[in-house]
Amino acid sequence: MVSVYLESRPMNENNPGVHFITITADEAGQRIDNFLRTHLKGVPKSMIYRIVRKGEVRVNKKRVKPEYKLQNDDEVRIPPVRRSDDEQAPVSAGIDKVAVLNDAVLYEDDYLLILNKPAGTAVHGGSGLSFGVIEGLRALRPDARFLELVHRLDRDTSGVLLVAKKRSALRALHEQLRAKGMQKDYLALVCGQWQSHVKTVAAPLLKNILASGERIVRVNSEGKPSETRFKVEERFTLATLVRASPITGRTHQIRVHAQHAGHPIAFDDRYGDGAFDQQLTVCGLNRLFLHAAALRFDHPGSGETLRIEAPLDAPLRQCLLYLRAHHK
Results as ranks from 00 to 15, higher is better:
219 V>N: 12
223 G>D: 15
246 P>R: 03
234 E>M: 07
244 A>Y: 11
251 T>M: 15
233 E>W: 12
222 E>W: 02
240 T>G: 00
230 F>E: 03
229 R>H: 15
231 K>N: 05
249 G>I: 07
234 E>K: 14
245 S>E: 05
222 E>F: 09
221 S>Y: 00
230 F>Q: 07
246 P>D: 02
249 G>S: 11
234 E>R: 13
239 A>D: 04
234 E>C: 07
222 E>S: 07
220 N>P: 03
215 R>T: 08
224 K>Y: 08
212 S>Q: 06
220 N>C: 12
244 A>T: 06
230 F>D: 05
215 R>D: 05
242 V>H: 06
247 I>Y: 15
229 R>F: 01
220 N>S: 15
213 G>V: 13
223 G>W: 13
237 T>W: 07
221 S>C: 00
218 R>I: 08
251 T>S: 10
250 R>C: 05
237 T>H: 10
239 A>L: 06
223 G>N: 11
243 R>P: 01
231 K>G: 00
252 H>V: 02
236 F>E: 05
226 S>G: 04
223 G>Y: 12
237 T>M: 04
225 P>T: 05
212 S>H: 08
232 V>G: 02
216 I>F: 09
218 R>W: 01
218 R>H: 15
218 R>N: 09
214 E>N: 06
228 T>I: 09
216 I>P: 03
229 R>K: 06
218 R>D: 10
253 Q>V: 01
225 P>Y: 08
224 K>L: 12
228 T>K: 11
224 K>M: 09
242 V>M: 06
241 L>S: 00
233 E>S: 09
216 I>Y: 13
219 V>I: 12
215 R>H: 10
245 S>W: 06
248 T>M: 05
252 H>T: 01
232 V>N: 02
239 A>G: 03
234 E>W: 09
236 F>Y: 15
232 V>P: 00
245 S>H: 03
219 V>G: 09
221 S>P: 01
244 A>I: 08
247 I>S: 06
245 S>G: 02
245 S>V: 04
238 L>A: 14
246 P>Y: 04
224 K>R: 14
220 N>R: 08
227 E>M: 13
225 P>G: 02
214 E>S: 03
216 I>T: 07
247 I>E: 14
215 R>P: 01
214 E>D: 12
252 H>W: 08
235 R>G: 04
213 G>P: 03
241 L>A: 01
231 K>S: 06
232 V>I: 09
223 G>E: 11
213 G>Y: 12
226 S>C: 04
243 R>Y: 00
237 T>E: 11
215 R>N: 04
250 R>A: 01
222 E>R: 15
